[in-house]
Amino acid sequence: MCIAETEPRGFVGRSAGVAAGGVFEGDGSFYVGLDAEWAYRITLLEQPTRVVIDIAND
């Protein structure tokens, strides 16, 4: 598994950053920073397995 710092996509009008926290015993951590509290939804998808974080626009 390759974990690297990535450029955030889709954070229009918000200060944002995504940073890799590392891997420990097969679990990866990422941190998402925003300029304020925003509503969000986290979804686990399959084929391929991935996590999607939706952050509200308004």
Rank of each mutant, 00 (worst) to 15 (best):
E37W: 08
T6R: 06
G21E: 01
V51T: 12
A36V: 15
L45R: 13
R41C: 11
G21V: 02
C2Y: 13
F24L: 08
V18P: 00
G10Q: 05
I55L: 07
D27K: 11
T49L: 15
M1S: 09
P48G: 08
R41F: 15
R14L: 08
A56T: 06
A39N: 10
G26N: 05
R41V: 15
E25D: 14
L34G: 00
V23A: 04
V18H: 01
P8Y: 00
V52S: 07
G28I: 09
G10M: 07
G10E: 04
P48E: 06
L34M: 06
L44D: 10
E5A: 14
N57S: 11
V18A: 00
R41L: 13
G21P: 00
A56W: 07
A19G: 03
M1I: 08
I3T: 10
V32M: 05
G10L: 04
G17K: 07
F24C: 15
A4V: 13
M1N: 08
F11N: 01
G13W: 01
Y40M: 06
D27E: 08
W38V: 12
F11Y: 03
S29T: 09
D35C: 01
Q47C: 09
F11C: 03
G33W: 10
I42R: 09
P48V: 07
A39V: 09
P8A: 01
A4Y: 09
C2H: 14
R41Q: 08
Q47P: 03
T6K: 06
A4W: 12
V18T: 01
V32L: 07
P8D: 00
W38D: 05
I42S: 05
V18N: 00
V18E: 00
T43G: 13
G22Y: 04
F11L: 04
I53P: 01
F11V: 01
F11G: 00
G13F: 01
V18L: 03
G28S: 09
Y40S: 14
D58T: 11
R41I: 07
V32Q: 04
E5I: 13
G33T: 11
G28N: 09
D58H: 09
A36E: 10
F24A: 09
G28V: 07
G33I: 06
V18K: 00
V12S: 11
M1C: 07
I55A: 04
P48F: 06
T43F: 07
G26K: 03
G17E: 07
I55K: 03
P48I: 07
D54A: 10
V23S: 05
Q47D: 13
R50D: 10
G22F: 03
G17W: 03
